[in-house]
Design a protein around this nucleic acid. Structure first.
Lengths: 170, 170
DNA sequence: TCATAATGTTTTGTATACCTAACTTTAACT
DNA sequence: AGTTAAAGTTAGGTATACAAAACATTATGA
């Protein structure tokens, strides 16, 4: 049970892929859902019944599948959590795309609203604060591969920071 | 199944609390494990059998419970993941202690090794980089409560940064 | 030491989430 | 329209993880 939606991780994943498929193909089909989630067709049917009962999807046997308003809202929220986490992993921590995607997929069910919104703000802050920004992120990658802090590098780095700040001000 | 340990989230949690109880009381007892995890005594017995079979704990009916070498290694690793995440949430994102604890508890099962180590490095970087550090984190909290970036604040902030850097150098 | 409380175990049952395989419906093509 | 393939469903089975309640063992202390 995930705090925000009241749904299991598994059901959250179903809603998330149904949204993706809806956006790609107007409607979702059981086969594609199964393929995306790596589960068998039979398992999808059970999940769909469950989600239909709870009012998250429009579904009847052999019908197409669409999200209800309620389901759409939750699916969008999960997709948002995913996107924020992936953004952080990819563009701040500089994790490789595949790992970032997979880890975002796991963590999206574990993060709470407060932390998520704080993370959004944090990512924003890093990009906009003149003390950090893109060159600072680049310097982090460099720091990751080096053993320790290098005074000379720091001197240069601060110079760059000041130069960029003055340039942007004018 | 969590990538690193091959254990379910639930079993990881059992190992984690067994470690905590071992550290506090030398040995763990089923009742305390249940209390810490919020599950019934009967459920604990089942989990213990499972963990014993897999060689993570020393356990026989009515006996005390201790971690095996193998179990200890994994429990320590989970505790480490927890500590890193909590540190990030608490001391970087400035999440309140209770939420930080709970979210670390959920996310510790979702994070992969690569991301974890990168996060460790990132936390370290923020503390040590002269462009960030403690005053920068404080400024983030301020940014969170304000609507937008304030040029004058930025000027001051950069001044502080330079002053601190020069002071630390000498 | 013996009664009682605390702790631990077993059994039975529930819920989730999958699988496989047989079967049904729908879609596509001739 | 009829055949066939693809997609969807159903039924039966597995594994995990929990609860509740009856039962067993251990610990406590009078």
């Amino acid at each position: 049970m995930t705090s925000k939606t009241g749904l299991s991780e598994s059901m959250e994943n179903y809603l998330e892929v149904i949204l993706e498929l809806e956006q790609a193909n107007k409607v979702a089909r059981a086969k594609d859902i199964g393929d995306k989630l790596g589960v068998q067709r039979g398992s999808v049917t059970g999940a769909l019944k469950n989600l239909e009962e709870k009012g998250f999807i429009n579904y009847a046997p052999y019908s197409f599948i669409t999200l209800t308003k309620k389901g759409n809202k939750i699916a969008k929220n999960i997709a948002y959590r995913h996107a924020v986490l992936k953004d952080f992993l990819l563009n701040i921590l500089q994790i490789d795309p595949e790992t970032a995607e997979n880890t975002a997929c796991s963590m999206e069910h574990a993060i709470d609203v407060q932390t998520l919104e704080r993370l959004v703000r944090f990512i924003d802050y890093i990009h906009k604060c003149p003390r950090t920004g893109e060159d600072w992120i680049k310097a982090f990658v460099d720091y990751c591969t080096s053993d320790d802090r290098d005074q000379e590098k720091c001197d240069q780095c601060i110079d760059t920071c000041i130069t960029l700040y003055k340039r942007d001000k004018s």
